[in-house]
């Protein structure tokens, strides 16, 4: 967080250096698949009913922006991100 001290931050991922932990409330999943479209390395869908499957509960920094986007966009508020 360096906004006031001169060095520019990366606006797309200001928290890139911190760890991220993802938890799912998969019972609420409506199988929209938006998370898979946005972050296919982190989320997948079950074949039979499309319910979300977590591939990586602690994804690397380069995935963080996409995971935040997926969590925000999920129409059933299934994805919780802690960082």
């Amino acid at each position: 967080m360096t906004g006031r001290t001169g060095r520019p931050t990366v606006p797309t991922d200001p928290h890139g250096a911190t760890a991220m932990k993802i938890t799912l409330d998969a019972d609420k999943c409506c199988a929209a698949g938006q998370c898979v479209l946005i972050a296919p390395d982190v989320f997948d869908q079950r074949d039979e009913d499309g319910v979300v499957v977590l591939l990586d509960a602690a994804p690397p920094a380069e995935q963080h922006a996409a995971v935040r986007e997926a969590a925000a966009i999920c129409p059933a508020a299934v994805i919780e991100v802690q960082e």
Partner: peptide, 21 residues
Amino acid sequence: ADGARPPERQPFAPVPYFWSD
């Protein structure tokens, strides 16, 4: 924003999605 790059407005062009159970 706090960043160096000024953000630019983007047109909203989604692929709509809906479901029903």
